[in-house]
Simulated assay, not measured.
Amino acid sequence: MSDHPEAPAVPVEAFEPPYYVAVFTAVRTPDQSGYSETDARMKELVRDIPGYLGMDYAQSPGGLAITVGYFRDAEALAAWRTDVEHRAAQQRGRAEWYQRYSLHVAKVERSHGFVRTEAPQD
């Protein structure tokens, strides 16, 4: 949803399946007036959704932005999808901030993670 310079250096942890992901991929328009403020507000709102697990984001130098939201169940995802402020932000995004986007929603059936605990050997 943003270039998120404050993004953590680690991805969101692997959760016990099943859970849901919403993958939002976008190319933004040159005029991003008001985007940062709306993005900050959306981050505040989504944290209050019961069943919200976290979010990962990345942006390429060419402007492709990917946001992955993690939700414990379909009800949590539906609560986010239907939130009134989120719906208004979506409309503004289509009118002003996005050149194009796609949204993919999936149920995760398998999940695992890895953390290196020592420096790699040369």
Rank of each mutant, 00 (worst) to 15 (best):
E6F: 06
E6A: 04
E6Q: 10
A7H: 06
A9F: 10
V10C: 07
P11W: 13
V12K: 00
V12Y: 00
E13D: 09
E13Q: 09
E13W: 02
A14C: 01
F15S: 04
F15I: 09
F15E: 14
F15G: 02
E16H: 08
P17M: 12
P17A: 09
P17H: 11
P17T: 13
P18Y: 08
P18R: 09
Y19K: 08
Y20M: 09
A22T: 15
V23H: 02
F24T: 10
F24H: 05
T25D: 02
T25A: 01
A26Q: 11
A26E: 13
A26D: 10
A26T: 14
A26R: 06
V27G: 03
V27M: 06
V27D: 09
V27H: 07
T29M: 09
P30V: 14
P30W: 14
D31T: 08
D31I: 08
Q32F: 03
S33H: 07
G34V: 14
G34K: 13
Y35F: 09
S36Y: 06
E37G: 05
T38D: 11
D39W: 01
R41D: 13
M42P: 00
M42N: 00
K43L: 13
K43T: 14
E44F: 02
L45A: 03
V46M: 04
V46R: 01
V46H: 01
V46Y: 00
R47K: 12
